[in-house]
Simulated scan of single mutants.
Amino acid sequence: MSAREIVAFLAGLVGLGATIGATVSNEWKSTSRASSVITATWVFQGLWMNCAGNAIGAVHCRQHHTILNLEGYIQVCRGLMISAVCLGFFGSVFALVGMKCTKIGGTDQIKARITCFAGFNFILSGFCSLTACSLYAHRITSEFFDPMFVAQKYELGAALFIGWAGSALCILGGVILCLSLSDGISRSSSRADRKGHAYSGAASLLSSRTKANGHSTNYHRPPPNYSTSSREFDKNAYV
């Protein structure tokens, strides 16, 4: 059980790192480099900056001018990725508290509920990142294959693949952590059943021993002989 929780926690943590890397990356979309020469340049853009580089290695970036003038899908992707990072962070904290191998969190049932809550955070984080990357990729592909689109066409950037991988790891880790709720409840109920059986067994054994001792004592103990004592008392009285 502990090994499975550790694997799920590491998967969610790596997924969170990939989500952060995709969020701050500037290669969400880029132009093709297939026909690049020494003087050729290519453009790549992210959620926060527009960059241009050449084959020599010089890269120049500038931030988006204003938030209000941005296209709607970029703003939506920004909000989704920030939400994914926040949910993944809280999921990591709750998973660390609720894991069985840690000494904090309370009883096994409480730790299982905390771990399940962390799993839900990881799952939501993965779906937010998956939605943002898929929305951005859909916009790129629709513009690329549209014959009526005459502006600069872009291809899928590396940040999208990193975001997809991170979302898959977060969802996987979250699902495994959510399964620990049933295990923790069943483990605590089995412990309670064992304690109940132990207490009832001890009580029944004590009562049976008490009954056996009482019957044996009453059976083997001879009744008091009052006649002999009264006779001796009478004889002594007359003497």
Rank of each mutant, 00 (worst) to 15 (best):
F161M: 06
G163P: 11
R113V: 10
A165M: 14
F145Y: 15
A95R: 08
S142L: 04
G157R: 05
H65G: 01
R78Y: 00
H138A: 14
A112I: 05
C116W: 11
G173Q: 00
A165F: 15
T66G: 01
T131S: 15
S167V: 03
V150M: 14
S208D: 10
S125K: 09
I176F: 13
F117S: 15
Y73I: 12
F161I: 02
V175A: 15
G88I: 09
L135E: 07
Y199D: 14
I123N: 08
I176T: 09
G184F: 10
S125Y: 04
E143S: 12
L177Y: 08
Y136V: 07
R194V: 10
S129V: 03
S83R: 09
A132E: 09
A198S: 15
R194H: 13
T115E: 14
E71Q: 11
F117T: 13
K195Q: 15
H138V: 00
S188K: 13
S125L: 06
G106V: 06
S186G: 05
T66A: 12
K153W: 01
S129L: 10
F89Y: 01
G88E: 01
L172S: 13
I82T: 10
S129D: 06
A168F: 06
T102L: 03
A192D: 13
T107D: 11
M81N: 07
S204Y: 07
K195D: 14
V150L: 13
S190F: 08
S83G: 14
L68N: 05
L179Q: 08
L179I: 08
